[in-house]
Simulated assay, not measured.
Amino acid sequence: MRARLLLWAALTAFLIDQISKYLVVHVMRVAEGPISVLPPFLVFRYGENRGINFGLFQGNGDAARWALIGVSLVISVGVLIWLMRSAPSKLLLVCGGLLIGGALGNVVDRVLYGYVLDFLNMSCCGFDNPYVFNMADVFIFAGAFGLVLFDRKKPS
């Protein structure tokens, strides 16, 4: 039961990420220009991220690409092992699944394109946010935040 919930959460996050990227990048062709959805709160803008979140640790070489793929896979396997060896709540399993599914979504991008496809841009209140991200980033952040917030084990 535990493994099934984690798997469903991971698969759902992965599919939402990959389908949204396909639709916005390949069908709506956001690379041809920004698409205002709910301006300025939500605008689709094309981005190619060769680093990690917010463009940190940008690397144009194959070594950086494969290193980031390796780090993502190691973290995903580590979270999976941790959750399968403990007695996590259902909420913790969903959070772990979101993190793993998001990480694998970005891994697929790096393997297929050499970079992560980004398209979400959110601004507000006179602040023009220059960064773009994708649904995988949302799932990774939400999953990691949830794993920290909802882990009931107290440090000894």
Rank of each mutant, 00 (worst) to 15 (best):
A3H: 11
A9N: 13
A13P: 05
A13C: 08
I16G: 04
I16H: 01
I16C: 12
D17Y: 05
D17F: 02
I19L: 14
S20G: 05
V24Y: 04
M28Q: 14
S36M: 09
V37W: 07
V37L: 11
F44A: 12
F44I: 06
R45G: 05
E48W: 01
G55D: 01
G55N: 10
F57L: 15
F57Y: 13
G59N: 11
N60P: 04
A64M: 13
I69R: 03
V71M: 14
S72L: 14
L73N: 02
L73I: 15
V74G: 08
V74A: 15
S76H: 08
S76Y: 08
G78T: 08
L80G: 05
L80Q: 06
I81N: 03
L83S: 07
M84E: 13
A87E: 14
S89Y: 04
L91P: 01
V107D: 05
Y113K: 10
Y113D: 04
L117S: 10
L120H: 00
S123Q: 05
C125S: 14
G126L: 06
F127H: 15
P130R: 01
Y131R: 06
F133S: 06
M135Q: 06
A136M: 08
F139W: 12
F141A: 11
V148I: 15
L149K: 01
L149E: 00
K153C: 02
K154L: 08
